[in-house]
């Protein structure tokens, strides 16, 4: 992750930011789960594309781009590993002459590469949806939403605090990297062993600083009566108006529809032994269009909600 990008939540006060957290939670959950249940690359591409207008409206491009740069490397690794390890598929692009025990004679097939690409696309879609959620919901609102969903307080607090201190961790890492660079370590050069050693030079101070921080925070919480009573009160609670409920339902709606379509047999895709045709057929395109329309419906609704609020 490149320097200069702050991973802190910023209230940019856009339509997406003002949307209530439940609606966003529902929508992002729908996208993520749909990305898991559908195999067809066209469906995955559609899901990925549907996250882009949300990110654009939320003006979260910087954070998105910086995470996507990282995801590009991840994707490359997924495709590479899949191609090198899976030898199924009928279109052999490259065949080696030696044999690896238990795996057999290595060969690289078109199908294995395509399958890797499909998996990478799925992962990228999930991360992209996560960006739409994480950089547009105030961390404390996220916590309140989790609590409202009846998740246990302590786990919710721990999660929300680890997210809150993540930016501090990024700052720490940058500072410690600077220290070690002035001691002659070139952190992104050298062989694997050297890199591992240099990584340790950043990791050890980073971890032990984090432990110190954890103790200090625990101490400060204790001093402010944390855990004094079994039930604590909540100063701010998320109130849901009728509209907000409707938005949350609208956000989740693509999920049951998607599941229904999947049960009907849409959105399946076969990679092995040879790639299936991409064209899903007339009915398949129609199902795809319906899902896309449902996913994007949240945006005009959110827009309407915003104007409605301003009146």
């Amino acid at each position: 992750m490149s320097s200069g990008t702050s991973y802190r939540y910023q209230d940019r006060d856009t339509v997406v930011h003002r949307l209530n957290p439940f609606a966003k939670l529902a929508w992002v959950a729908a996208v993520m789960l749909l990305a898991v249940i559908f195999d067809h690359p066209l469906y995955l591409i559609m899901l990925f594309l549907s996250t882009l207008p949300v990110i654009a409206l939320a003006r979260a491009w910087r954070e998105w781009a910086s995470l996507m740069r990282f995801m590009l490397w991840m994707s490359l690794a997924i495709v590479l590993i899949n191609a090198l390890v899976i030898y199924q598929g009928s279109h052999v692009l490259l065949e080696f002459t030696f044999e690896i025990p238990t795996l057999g004679q290595p060969k690289i097939t078109l199908e294995a590469i395509a399958f890797g690409l499909g998996m990478a696309l799925r992962l990228v879609t999930i991360v992209s949806a996560f960006v739409a959620l994480n950089f547009t919901v105030h961390p404390d609102d996220m916590m309140q939403a989790m609590l409202k969903l009846r998740l246990p307080y302590k786990s919710v607090l721990a999660t929300s605090m680890s997210l809150r201190f993540f930016p501090a961790l990024v700052d720490d890492r940058e500072r410690i990297s600077d220290v070690q660079r002035t001691r002659g370590m070139e952190l992104d050069r050298g062989g694997l062993l050297q890199r591992a050693r240099n990584g340790g030079a950043v990791l050890v101070p980073l971890l032990s600083n984090s432990l110190d921080r954890a103790v200090q925070i625990a101490e400060a919480m204790e001093a402010r009566a944390f855990g004094a009573y079994k039930r604590r009160t909540a100063f701010s609670e998320i109130t849901l108006s009728g509209w907000d409920r409707l938005l949350a339902v609208a956000g989740l709606l693509p999920l049951p529809v998607g599941i229904y379509l999947r049960c009907l047999g849409y959105g399946k895709y076969r990679y092995y032994p040879s790639l299936q045709r991409l064209d899903p057929g007339m009915a398949g395109w129609l199902a795809l269009a319906v899902l896309a329309a449902l996913l994007l419906a949240i945006l005009p609704l959110a827009w309407f909600r915003k104007r409605w609020q301003l009146d």
Binding site: H138, A168, I217, M221, R224, A225, R231, R232, F235, S236
Partner: peptide, 21 residues
Amino acid sequence: ENQLVTADVEREIAFGMENLA
């Protein structure tokens, strides 16, 4: 840095009072 638990001013001040229920 290491004694603030929440992300904004109002909620930070409320934190202890919430603990006291």
